[in-house]
Design a protein around this nucleic acid. Structure first.
Lengths: 343, 343
DNA sequence: TTGTACGCGTTATCAC
DNA sequence: GTGATAACGCGTACAA
């Protein structure tokens, strides 16, 4: 299995006439050695071609420096960029990431968590929605969730309510005759529900004519197009000539609506304003750049890992004080005004 | 660190009056135990709440079941989907993945590889372009690269040459007056160079009027737009009224050109045909669905992991036979005809 | 400042 | 079919 036996502390110890302990100290507490001895060992290391073995170290001290991640998939920008930003925190904290794609399959995800626990991960980041937070909390290891039901565990989320407020306010400022929020049916316990409450808050506060269309647009692009076309046809019928402010739950969907309108009219008609959500690349790359509520994915990711690291550090103390209440952090979204509202 | 001491084979052994060895066998070779004894142990496991510890197992048998991945980033669909597909192979092979984002920073990536080696990964998948394949080969562990310079290591790549052929052929079939390939300056030793040779092959074979524009379009979307606009202006000037077949190096760039033309003419003018590369979501989601050369990311990913698994398995044999020559696999791209050529 | 001896939790090699 | 015992490579009291 191994072609040539690995060089171990023992070999180095014999070679340098020190003890294994001293070699160990060279790595973990070098200041406790004299400078000369440090140099002797350093030289021996290269001469023998030593390669560290962190597996052995883990077994001895229990610190794997592993964080597990369960993420539904990487098909959209939100998840892939989130994973990207999480992985980048290695530079800051040094934790390695074991990543599993859950596909929102509950039983599978449970197995993945079992596997992660077998590898003695020190913490867990959950982005999938399947397993209830109560069950996650019972795992009894540091956990942070991102943008999902989070009652019993720590979490970092976008301030979705604020996002809804920003979107509605922007449309209101442009004197839309009617504000329309298009979203799939959303459970009240996921953070994204805040987009709806935020939207409603502004509409009611300012006594604006408004409406929410709950509809599952579908998974394939073709489905989305069909459903979006239905909605547009409906809106054109009900609100002819009125200025319609569309707040759409994500940029991909917003782009579908935009394209439909563009192909119908050769341009974005004056009676349509569009605001998306996420600030994903498509909002920038659309024929007409789409105004959107930008999620600060980098901040969310680094906050999530920080929050996790704090909990993991707490556990390493002699007298760990577990959190009384889960901590929920919130990251403010950023309004991006682009051409679909500022023509 | 651990709140309550973990249950170990020792505990189970005492509890059941078997030896550690037997407990171990229960997991690794259950058939060697009598059925009753299997049940006794199974019962003890749940009663004591045993959780397996793979770290200890690794130290004992050397098999980490870890595969390391160095990927430049996850900002575009190609990389994120490739990672997605690679991670999904866990279901088939059971290997866990340690993922590092390299950002094409050579020194950093070397450090990441060191770290991965310290965790005794059994194999390595490289998608970044920085470290020469010669150096990777010297690491002396199973390696597979994807879509990069691969002279001294195993690899899986798209058949880029075929892709170039497909694109040029499609444009030729539509009787374009001139075929234009737009690409950034490309080194001859990366697989993507094949797109150029494929394009040229068809053009020369069929004596087609053609041209290659090597230009770095830039990193930001704004830059891309400016540079693309320059190119379009130039093309309009040089080839007015002629039917121009554009083969553009990737879908994101193709979409930039498309949008520019759409906004100028309200539609895609009849004298422009466009073919992109990748079949990334943007090609589908564009105002006008873009014809493209589709990379079979799922196949590439699974081929890559298979190829790696074969090498890793070979190493576990008593008499491993190392590969004489690196194996290079190639996956055929798929032509997607959409509206930018089939109007 | 350095060394001794043992533990971490599992697997491998012999025995029986 | 089952059991002792020695690895695996490193960390850490405790001692010197």
């Amino acid at each position: 299995m191994k072609q040539k036996k690995n060089v171990t502390f023992n070999d180095i110890a014999k070679y340098t006439n020190f003890s294994k302990t001293t070699i160990s100290r060279y790595f973990n507490n070098p200041d406790s050695l004299t400078l000369e001895n440090q140099e002797i060992i350093a030289k021996a290391l290269v001469e023998l071609g030593y390669k560290e073995n962190k597996v052995a170290r883990i077994l001895a001290n229990g610190k794997t420096e592993f964080i597990g991640i369960i993420i539904p998939h990487l098909h959209n920008h939100y998840y892939s960029e989130m994973l990207n930003q999480i992985l980048l925190t290695y530079e800051k904290f040094g934790y390695k990431f074991l990543v599993f794609i859950g596909n929102e399959h509950e039983e599978t995800e449970r197995q993945y968590i079992e596997e992660l626990l077998a590898y003695k991960i020190e913490g867990l980041i959950i982005l999938s929605h399947t397993i209830p937070s109560k069950e996650l909390a019972d795992l009894n290891i540091p956990i942070v969730t991102i943008e999902r039901e989070d009652r019993y565990v720590c979490s970092v989320n976008t301030d979705n309510h604020m996002g809804g407020v920003q979107a509605a306010s922007l449309l209101a400022k442009h004197n839309c005759d009617i504000l329309i929020h298009i979203n799939s049916p959303t459970s009240t316990d996921v953070p994204a529900y805040g987009r709806i409450t935020g939207f409603l808050e502004i509409c009611e506060e300012k006594h604006l004519n408004h409406r929410i269309i709950y509809r599952e647009l579908g998974k394939s692009y073709e489905e989305m197009q069909e459903n979006a076309l239905d909605i547009i046809t409906e809106l054109d019928e009900i609100y002819p000539g009125q200025k319609k402010g569309l707040f759409i739950s994500n940029d991909t969907h917003a782009n579908v609506f935009l394209n439909l309108l563009m192909r119908k009219h050769g341009k974005l008609p004056d009676d349509y304003l569009i605001v998306g959500f996420d600030d994903s690349p498509i909002s920038r790359e659309a024929v007409i750049p789409i105004s959107t509520i930008g999620q600060q994915i980098d901040k969310i990711a680094s906050e999530a890992v920080s929050l996790l690291v704090e909990q993991m550090n707490e556990r390493k103390k002699r007298k760990p004080v577990p959190l009384k209440e889960p901590i929920h952090k919130v990251v403010t979204p950023i309004l991006c005004r682009r051409e679909t509202t500022e023509k």
